[in-house]
């Protein structure tokens, strides 16, 4: 049997892309959601939240922080789960 037909390998590849695509979609939704607000509904971001502050400030800073947190989520998952799956497969095939 070829290595690429190994069920563990197929599962590894599937999981990797599931996680990657899910996180990519979350990032795209957050970022383009923000851009679409700027493009089509500036008033929403200009809404007041307390003296001299607008909703745009926490949202904007939040987008910046979310980008970093998402890379953290991916790194955490990959270090904890993905890497050990890789080394299991490598052990199994003796590499």
């Amino acid at each position: 049997m070829n290595l690429q037909d190994l069920p563990e390998f197929k599962k590894l590849v599937r999981r990797k892309w599931q996680v990657s695509i899910l996180l990519t979609v979350i990032m795209l939704v957050i970022y383009f959601g923000f851009i679409l607000l700027i493009a089509f509904d500036k008033q929403f971001l200009a809404r007041s939240i307390g003296r001299n502050l607008t909703l745009g400030l926490p949202i904007g800073i939040g987008v910046l922080i979310s980008a970093w947190l998402l890379t953290g989520v991916y790194t955490y998952w990959a270090n904890r789960v993905h890497d050990s799956r890789i080394s299991d497969i490598k052990k199994k095939i003796g590499k």
């Binding site: 990657s20 996180l23 990032m27 970093w68 890379t71």
Partner: peptide, 18 residues
């Protein structure tokens, strides 16, 4: 100005995911 900063940062998560 913040809009630009955000645009310059959000490519990085894609770099790591894909």
């Amino acid at each position: 100005g913040l809009i630009y900063s955000i645009g310059f940062l959000v490519g990085w998560p894609l770099l790591i995911f894909l």
